[in-house]
Computed example of a mutant assay.
Amino acid sequence: MLQRNRTFEVGQIHFGSSTTLCKHIMLPLLQTFVEKNPHIRVTIDGLSSRETALQLTANKMDIGLLVETSASKSLAFTPLTDLSYTFVASRQYLENLKLREGIDYTKKDPAFFQKATLMLMDHENISRQHIEAYFSANSIETRQILETSNMELLIEFAKIGLGVSCLIRNFVEKDIKNGTLIEIPLRKNISTRTVGFAYSKESVHNPAVAKFKQILKETYGK
């Protein structure tokens, strides 16, 4: 059996990532990895960035795709790109809001956020905490909030006109360009955050991790 495993390069690799980051960033890398290493077993845990960092610190997984936080500072971290945040809604929702509340989203009026139904990640999510810090720093008050633990749902909720979603702009650029979603102009932009891959200390002993790092280098040059 050992000889057979060596022949087919059987191994295993354990990832952690949120659903949204996995869909938009990790999936293409995983596709290439599986094509090149079809016999390596892949496990993926759907976790928040904070939870992923904790699992990596405890050596309970090999690699995590996460937004850089204080919890990930002690881990080996390879940054990939910066994530930009934005508020979006359907054109129909914004037109109805103007008719109902007399508020024009193009005026950059802070009162817009009091009149609109805001759709945000739940309080435990680090993106939500980042946005709450933005609200506080810019004296923006909110009243009507719909919460969810899944950013993919926030995207779909915005498209059907349920309210104004706070999303990672990188993942809805196509929808903004084709007019499916309308971007809300802000007086001050929301600061970006860095996303990348973090590794547990034990991962250096896993040959499958080395193979994934090679694909990462070929794709991102990192």
Rank of each mutant, 00 (worst) to 15 (best):
N96D: 15
E124I: 12
S149I: 12
S200V: 01
L21G: 01
S18F: 06
N37A: 04
I25A: 05
F212Q: 04
G11S: 15
H14D: 11
F157W: 02
K107C: 10
E68W: 09
N125H: 11
S70R: 14
L80Y: 03
S139H: 15
F112Y: 04
K211E: 08
T32S: 12
N178E: 13
G46S: 10
S165E: 05
T32I: 12
N37W: 06
S74V: 14
L56Q: 05
M1C: 12
L2T: 11
E218Y: 07
F113M: 03
L94W: 00
T148V: 10
T86P: 03
I126K: 03
P185V: 02
L120R: 01
F87K: 02
G102K: 00
F212L: 12
L120N: 03
S84Q: 15
L27E: 08
S90N: 06
S136H: 13
K213V: 07
K98E: 00
H205A: 08
R187Q: 08
K108W: 02
D175M: 10
P38F: 07
F87E: 02
F197M: 10
A210V: 14
L216D: 07
L162C: 13
T19C: 13
H14S: 11
Y134E: 04
E183P: 07
Q31A: 10
E51L: 11
L167D: 04
D109T: 05
G196K: 06
N206H: 09
N96T: 13
F8Q: 11
D175L: 10
T117M: 14
D122A: 12
K174H: 15
Y199F: 07
S165A: 14
K159Q: 05
T52I: 07
I215K: 00
M119V: 03
T19V: 09
K98A: 08
L54Y: 10
R128I: 07
E124P: 10
S90P: 02
S84M: 14
K177D: 14
K108Q: 08
I184T: 04
P79G: 06
G196T: 06
L186A: 01
G11R: 06
A89C: 08
V42G: 08
H205W: 15
E95H: 14
G161N: 09
R6H: 15
S74A: 14
D175P: 09
K23S: 10
E202P: 09
Y134S: 01
A58C: 11
K217S: 14
K213N: 10
S18W: 01
L47W: 02
E95L: 15
E101P: 03
L29D: 00
S139L: 14
L21C: 09
A133K: 13
N178D: 14
K60H: 15
A208M: 07
L21D: 05
K177Q: 15
